[in-house]
């Protein structure tokens, strides 16, 4: 169940993403999605907020800003054994609340979105398969780095990732290369090149590049490489 939540939290669904989270087959994904209309969000909310004064229910909704989350929190903490993926796949409307009661609130909120179809972006939309490229480190935050590729004379963000196998050394370099900072996010001189690999590209219109990388990771720090060699986005 934790995997399902992590999976759903991550964005659009693809065969590669299902595989990476232990869903054996894209067919399984299809089965989850096929079962998602077992109950509408209106009905879920009505059941979860039953017996509350109207003003209290409204305040809960306003605090969460989302009926799925408010309904999930109203049901309280998880009780009983964790829910298996098989049970989610087999769910029918009469068992929805009994099943949900055994999930942690975060998982439950995603489950409600899934079964009500409220999570529209759970749609298989793949923009490309596995690949790799060279990218330059532009910012550092905690144990993560922001990597960018070239567009014309400028840089566009590609992905934010753990700094990878040479993390400690990269950070030591970054400390001497900080340009400016906005809270915990430090921009650094764009001069260190890294090889980035990924499992799949999925469409995301909110990104400058128009896609997200799935299963991305730093393969190596290409110390000899120059910024001129990084990929064109």
């Amino acid at each position: 169940m934790e995997e399902l939540a992590a999976f759903l939290e991550g964005g659009a669904a693809t065969g590669a993403r299902f595989a990476a989270h232990g869903f054996a087959m894209p067919e399984q994904a299809a089965a989850v999605l096929a079962g998602r209309r077992v109950m509408g969000m209106g009905e879920i909310w009505a059941r979860a907020s039953e017996g509350l004064p109207e003003g209290v229910a409204a305040a809960c909704l306003a605090a969460c800003g989302d009926r799925a989350e408010a309904a999930a929190l109203l049901m309280g903490r998880a009780e009983g054994d964790p829910v298996g993926l098989e049970e989610v796949l087999a769910v029918r409307s009469e068992g929805v609340f009994a099943l949900a009661r055994r999930m942690e609130p975060v998982e439950r909120a995603w489950f409600f979105r899934l079964i009500s179809g409220a999570r529209r972006s759970v749609v298989v939309e793949e923009a490309g398969g596995p690949g790799e490229c060279l990218a330059v480190l532009t910012m550092v935050e905690g144990a993560q780095g922001q990597f960018a590729v070239r567009r014309g004379n400028g840089l566009v963000p590609l992905v934010k990732l753990p700094l990878g196998p040479h993390g400690a050394e990269v950070l030591a370099w970054a400390r001497g290369a900080v340009l400016e900072r906005f809270g915990p996010l430090r921009s650094v001189r764009a001069e260190q090149v890294f090889r980035i690999a990924w499992e799949a590209k999925v469409v995301n219109k909110r990104r400058k590049l128009g896609f997200d990388l799935v299963g991305a990771r730093v393969v190596d720090w290409e110390r000899g490489a120059s910024v001129d060699q990084i990929a064109e986005g």
Binding site: G142, A143, L163, A168, L171, V178, G183, R186
Partner: peptide, 14 residues
């Protein structure tokens, strides 16, 4: 965390 003190933390998660 927004101050320069955070620079001395090294690799970290928050």
């Amino acid at each position: 965390m927004a101050s320069d003190w955070a620079l001395s933390l090294g690799l970290h998660r928050v």
